[in-house]
């Protein structure tokens, strides 16, 4: 038995650029996407098809023109596109984790604190959060001598791994991943695959953009094709979805 953790219904998004002569850019229309616990859906389509826009809409970072995104949050079902801001903040704190392509943090804050912050915000003790941060940083091969430094001077790959550690420190029931392995070497790609698979085993619903075929094959249960707005999005089954226990059942 699996439960649907995230359900986007009739989602449409168009950008209107008022500063550039009111140009309208339709991105996608009438998207319907269901993601179950323990399942990983890979958003698929050419560059510019609207994969990141869809992912950001699922996180309420973009405001869709129409449609809803229902998420399982704290025992209730909430439409994140219609929720009040404080509710969205709460949903992001406890339910949806998002790995952006770039790390955006307060300057001059040490890596260990950057990674531990979401866990502390969720009510874990500083010691516990720091211990979890150390474990994740070690797994992601960020050398210990860097932990007390701010990530601004890190390489692209190191920053991305800090970003991943920050999003995996909380066991979010829903994970949105925007090219989490784009600038990583083979070893670290493997670690990220492991992290995603562990999240699936504990029952997380994962939606991601993976350009890397190796990563996609390793984590994705099915592809969700996004094409230009006037065509119907089609679903291509990639692997049968295993019947994973729900979080409740595991607990």
């Amino acid at each position: 038995m699996t439960i649907i953790r995230l359900h986007a219904r009739g989602l449409s998004k168009t950008f209107t650029l008022h500063t550039q002569g009111g140009t309208t850019l339709p991105v996608f229309e009438d998207i319907d996407l269901q993601v179950r616990s323990g399942e990983c859906v890979c958003l698929h389509g050419p560059s510019g098809a609207g994969k990141s826009t869809l992912l950001r809409s699922l996180y309420a970072n973009y405001k869709p023109q129409s449609g809803s995104v229902m998420v399982q949050h704290d025992g209730e079902i909430v439409d994140i596109t219609a929720a009040e801001p404080w509710k969205v903040v709460e949903i992001r704190r406890f339910t949806i984790g998002y790995v952006s392509q770039f790390l955006r943090v307060i300057p001059r804050v040490p890596v260990l604190d950057v990674v531990a912050e979401p866990a502390i915000t969720n009510g874990r003790s500083v010691e516990e959060a720091h211990a979890a941060a150390r474990t994740l940083l070690t797994r992601l091969r960020i050398p210990e001598r860097l932990w007390s430094l701010a990530p601004a001077t890190f390489s692209g790959g190191e920053q991305q791994r800090v970003n991943i550690a920050r999003s995996f420190i909380v066991a979010y029931p829903i994970l949105l991943l925007d090219e989490p392995t784009a600038s990583l070497d083979a070893e670290n790609r493997k670690t990220v695959i492991e992290l995603i698979c562990e999240a699936k085993v504990r029952g997380a619903a994962v939606v991601g953009i993976f350009h890397d075929a190796e990563v996609r094959d390793a984590v994705a249960d099915r592809l969700f094709e996004i094409r230009s707005t006037h065509r119907e999005p089609t679903e291509i089954p990639c692997k049968p979805v295993p019947d994973l226990p729900t979080i409740e059942a595991v607990a």
């Binding site: 500063t19 973009y62 801001p85 969205v88």
Partner: peptide, 21 residues
């Protein structure tokens, strides 16, 4: 008005778009 990242990343009002750009 809205969530900070929403207003800054997907501004709808012409003035906000000007401000962000």
């Amino acid at each position: 008005e809205g969530l900070t990242d929403q207003v800054l990343d997907d501004p709808h009002h012409p003035y906000t778009q000007l401000l962000v750009s």
